[in-house]
Amino acid sequence: MLKKLKTDNRIFEDNILKTMSTVFKIQQLTKFYGPIHALNNVSIDIPKGSIFGLLGPNGSGKTTMLGIIMNITIATSGTVLFNDTPLTADGRKKIGTLLETPNFYHYLSAYDNLKITATIKGIKNPDIDGVLKQVNLYERRFSKFQTFSLGMKQRLAIATCLLGDPEVMIFDEPTNGLDPVGINEIRNLIKSLAKNGKTIVMASHLLDEVEKVCTHVAILKKGNLLVQGGINQIMNQDDMIELNASNHDLLLETVRQIPHYIKHEITDNGNIMVYVKQGTVDTEGINQLCFKNGIVLNTLSLKTESLENIFIGLTS
């Protein structure tokens, strides 16, 4: 029941997002580094208000794509539209971006570094103290950047993204170098930004996090786009139930009688994984069915296909 509600909710979110306009329209993006094909004719639409997860193994072209969007990498061909117009320097001022490692003037303080960013972005009366408080760096605002730990540097980079309260944010591995507490803080921050209706593009290896937070996902491999769309579309897998009982052979015969049965597999630990049509699983009914057939289940658990499994399946 809970799962059905969750699924319905996601389908509802998908439908809402389908009607939304796109923030980024990436069209046939190609990038060669000499003979290496970093991006191969990739086209992605990023809807307004979405949290867009960009996934892919190392060297799949995620950072290259974000680099092209932010004009630090020149595309061999293709275009990037931002709010339906080609992305210019003025457009980039409206985007908060953290790409790879934090880049700041080592000899300047956190405050001075943020002041430079605010001046470049043309932000009048920037709330530098406010964003420093948000990332817990206010106490160290006059310390030089070179004295910061990796986690503090990353937090300062996130503070630059928050300057001017941009509607669109791009994060490339935002939790890199952070300790568990820092990771949790950043996760919560991203979630709160998402709640405020910001469009967030996030390249990450933390698939569990992407699955929890993102509304849309694109998976890249060796510069090719493997799949893109709403996370529900991508996660649109059959329901799975893991079963086991002492009478294993009888259980194997019984699982075929489960309503909307598709197939079954034996797992590594000897359990039976039964696949049924998405949204139709009824654990109480299965228990009753087994009981009627004289089987006492010692394992009955509902499994869902994780994004990680989908990712590994697609990229391996």
Partner: peptide, 21 residues
Amino acid sequence: TNEYTYRTHRQNIIDGIDRKD
């Protein structure tokens, strides 16, 4: 060279300075 060492040239472009500027 500081801009290259600290990679702040990238950050400046990301923040919205035109390459020519």
